[in-house]
């Protein structure tokens, strides 16, 4: 898995609340059997008009945010469908960190699985960061995961992070490989299931 340690990059403000994964990557661009090819369709219906031309008023179509590596977003970001393609699209576009007052649970887990850092901050802080991000002069932020701080406009903002998520991102851990190191415990549970919980197994026929 891709690591995340520190990042300095342009942040784009996108403060609408409840941005759902259908908005991040509309379903019609999800017909794919690979993990790639989604970036071009990130926020498709916000970025492009019905004829496929860029909408000049959308932040990611303007300099310097075209090269955004960070999004400063509204509450409940990533709600709706569990589609991981939403994160694949963000990642392919170049986004490595999201800052919002809250995220949907599934979306946040999908982020971590792809080396993208979801940072939760209170509404006021998010609004302040969005204001900085909205000014080309101050749009570059720095995020330091080991130190759990964001540096923006000369200010240092601490953030909370689940220690497991932090550890996993800093080390780029393949979660399946980690889980497989617990094979003896998994096998023990499996044996107990077969002996004491037969009803939990499906009848086949």
């Amino acid at each position: 898995m891709e690591r995340f340690t520190t990042l300095t990059g342009v942040a784009a403000p996108l403060l609408r609340g409840n941005i759902d994964t259908d908005t991040i990557i509309p379903q019609r661009w999800c017909k794919s059997v690979t993990r790639t090819g989604f970036g071009a369709h990130l926020f498709h219906d916000l970025r492009f008009d019905g004829a496929g031309a860029e909408r000049a008023d959308f932040v990611l179509n303007r300099a310097p945010w075209r090269a955004a590596a960070i999004l400063v977003a509204g509450a409940n970001f990533g709600c709706g469908s569990s589609r991981e393609a939403a994160v694949w699209a963000l990642h392919e576009f170049g986004v490595r960190c999201l800052i919002a007052p809250s995220f949907s649970d599934i979306f946040a887990r999908n982020c971590v699985a792809n080396g993208v850092l979801p940072v939760t901050l209170d509404e006021d802080r998010v609004a302040r960061l969005a204001a900085l991000a909205g000014d080309p002069e101050t749009a570059a932020l720095s995020v330091d995961l080991p130190a759990q701080t964001i540096v923006a406009g000369g200010e240092q903002i601490p953030f909370e992070m689940d220690p497991y998520v932090r550890h996993r991102l800093i080390n780029g851990l393949d979660e399946i490989a980690v889980t497989l190191t617990h094979e003896p415990e998994i096998a023990a549970h499996e044996r107990w299931l077969g002996a004491a919980r037969r009803w939990r197994l499906p009848a086949r026929g």
């Binding site: 993990r35 569990s82 589609r83 991981e84 994160v87 599934i106 887990r109 999908n110 699985a113 792809n114 979660e175 399946i176 889980t179 497989l180 998994i186």
Partner: peptide, 13 residues
Amino acid sequence: GIGTSEVEHVLAT
């Protein structure tokens, strides 16, 4: 519900 990476995790483990 889970994402695709977690689908892979459940399939494998």
